[in-house]
Design a binder for these strands. Structure first.
Length: 573
RNA sequence: CGGGAUGUGGCCCAGUGGCUAGGGCACCUGGUUUGGGACCAGGGGAUCGGAGGUUCGAAUCCUCUCAUCCCGACCA
């Protein structure tokens, strides 16, 4: 590429809406421009990098036997009604009607379409396994798009779906994809962690997220300081304890007047108790069923764990009206004893360890003190329903402590089971001639987000520092004096020889001053700069600068090509 | 959806009732420069987000509306 005719404009200043460094640098380097909130134009520099990431993805997936397909963005509502997700996917699913008044949506993901496509072709176990993928635009009408390509509404995603005859085979496929993802992100030059993850609305019961470690990451990750355990904050487990309470320390239950004291802070202050002596009682709607969730006062309820425990589609707090109906009291005075309407009580394991605890009395302006589990109430279910936090013991090993990191989720793999194949009758005849649903997995990579994450992890004050594998160009040739014939001739010759050697080279043949070119080159982040100036060329030398280290060395013109070929292959190892 | 903020040339910002709406960056022309975002001179580009209203007079005040950003809730 000759920069003199490139569709490229760099900027010294950034729009104030760009809040994170990847967004700022992508804007300044002329890679992306916003069209609407969360919707971006990809300019040539960005697209070149995206295509390289895509090429890496394709290579690694084909190695594992995946086959590429392309499905439509516009999808008929019927399929979504069949899977049930038309009802509960929510406003993130952009719905619209065609001229015949039929319902459609823009695909936020493609489980429905792929399952439909596969069931039309799948007859026998002999055809399996299949693992189909595509790289394509998705649309999710996010409540709050932000951070440029990090959380857009329209974005490029690689999504893959596996179909297997058995759980074992499906988990083998899952592992293949896990390995492929590890290879992909390694090749992209990223520092990342694969962590245990919640499955959310997509369903299924096994999942890992690939998190690129970066301060600006939206996700919290907890990992063990000692063993290899790592999980998304919302999935991270609590270390199991055994609870033996000494009955002799129990005191008798009492009702106390606590006028207008609703929150944990208010009640603890009013009664002179510590937060850990209280039980937080919250009414949740778990799909259609109301459940009273109990956790220790100093802990936070983890909705993802409730959703997983009850295998629910949606979990949300009940509204005030429902709370009043169930408890018989205003919100803020709920508790496990004396509910107006008996509902299921789900207590976090930690509640078993509290002696003489305080909870709402299900009576407005009253709490109960010195309540004890088993003696005063029973939980219908006990489980892990709270958020883990940094500093807590590792749930897996004996020595470790959980540490927190921030991460950008660039990929996630799910084992789905038969959630979609059952609801959509994606069946086949197994070895016994019996019709059974396919075992499925699904696997996503945010391609644009991977690009943004790479910049978050690889930049300095001057600009981007591209990993070689995903740099828009691998090297920039910089003739500094366009009036000097030797400079121009050597530059052009090198440029051609690079292209012939299969190196992605650009040449800055713009009539600009040296300082301008240097700053631009650092901003865009070409891994290598070949600086060609009158002084050095007179001695048959050029200057080679490595962006990542800032190292400069003079080199004979004749040696530059081989050096570059070698440098590139080293960088791609 | 709740809370907060902002909309003035492509980008950053000034202008808070009164002459033809300013500056910096970017862009065009000429000249001087030429190894870390040059300088001088000249020039082009804006219905001040939109609609309505108040006023002799509105970028500025009022009403409505649209858009964007931040925090929260929410989210493969």
């Amino acid at each position: 590429m000759r920069l003199s005719s490139a569709f490229l404009k760099t900027m010294k200043e950034v729009p104030k809406e760009a809040q994170v460094v990847s967004h700022q640098l992508m804007f300044r380097a002329g890679m992306i421009q916003k069209l609407a909130s969360g919707i971006y134009n990809y300019l040539p520099m960005a697209l070149r990098s995206l295509r390289k990431i895509e090429a890496i993805i394709r290579e690694e997936l084909e190695k594992k036997g995946c086959q590429e397909v392309l499905m439509p963005i516009v999808q008929p509502a019927e399929l979504w009604k069949e899977s049930g997700r038309w009802e509960y996917y929510g406003a993130e699913l952009l719905r619209f009607k065609d001229r015949k008044d039929s319902d459609f949506c823009l695909g936020p993901t493609h489980e429905e379409v792929i399952t439909d496509m596969v069931r039309k072709n799948l007859k026998s176990y002999k055809q399996l396994p299949w693992n189909l993928y595509q790289i394509q635009s998705k649309f999710r009408d996010e409540i709050r798009p932000r951070f440029g390509l990090m959380r857009g509404r329209e974005f490029i995603m690689k999504d893959a779906y596996s179909f297997d005859e058995s759980v074992e085979k499906s988990l083998e496929n899952y592992q293949l994809m896990y390995d492929a993802y590890t290879a992909i992100f390694n090749r992209c030059g990223l520092i990342f962690k694969a962590v245990d993850a919640a499955t959310g609305a997509i369903g299924g019961d096994r999942s890992h997220e690939f998190q690129v470690l970066a301060e600006s990451g939206e996700d919290g990750i907890l990992s063990c300081s000692h063993c290899g355990y790592a999980a998304n904050e919302e999935k991270a487990a609590i270390k199991e304890k055994s609870y033996k309470l000494d009955n002799s320390t129990f005191i008798s239950l009492e009702e106390v007047h606590t006028p207008n004291q609703k929150s944990i802070e208010e009640v603890t202050e009013f009664l002179g108790k510590k937060p850990e002596e209280l039980i937080k009682s919250m009414v949740y709607m778990v799909d259609e069923e109301a459940v009273l969730v109990l956790v220790q006062g100093n802990k936070e309820v983890n909705e993802a764990k409730i959703q997983a425990y009850f295998n629910a589609n949606i979990v949300h707090l009940a509204d005030d009206k429902t709370v009043e109906e169930i408890t018989g009291a205003a919100t803020g005075f709920a508790g496990p004893i004396g509910l107006n309407k008996q509902i299921k009580i789900a207590a976090d394991n930690g509640v078993q360890g509290i002696i003489n605890m305080v909870c709402g009395a299900n009576k407005t302006d009253y709490h109960l003190t010195d309540v004890n589990i088993e003696r005063d109430f029973k939980a219908d279910v006990l489980g892990d329903f709270i958020h883990a936090a940094a500093g807590e013991p590792c749930p897996v090993c004996e020595e470790g402590i959980l540490e927190e990191h921030r991460g950008i989720e660039v990929g996630q793999v799910f084992y789905l089971g038969t959630k979609y194949s059952k609801s959509m009758s994606c069946n086949f005849l197994d070895r016994n001639g019996k019709e059974v649903p396919a075992e499925m997995g699904c696997y996503g990579i945010g391609v644009g987000r991977t690009l943004a994450a790479a910049i978050e992890q690889n930049h300095d004050d001057n600009g981007i520092i591209w990993p070689m594998a995903i740099a828009p160009y691998e090297v920039l040739i910089m003739p500094l004096q366009l009036k000097d014939e030797d400079v121009v001739n050597v530059s052009n010759t090198l440029y051609k020889s690079f292209l012939e050697a299969g190196i992605d080279a650009a040449i800055d043949d713009r009539n600009e001053r040296a300082g301008f070119k240097f700053n631009d080159a650092d901003l865009i982040g070409y891994p290598v700069q070949i600086i060609i100036g009158s002084k050095t060329i007179a001695e048959g030398m050029v200057e080679v600068k490595v962006r990542a280290t800032g190292e400069k060395q003079n080199m004979k013109v004749a040696e530059v090509k081989d050096w570059m070929i070698n440098f590139k292959s080293e960088a791609l190892k």
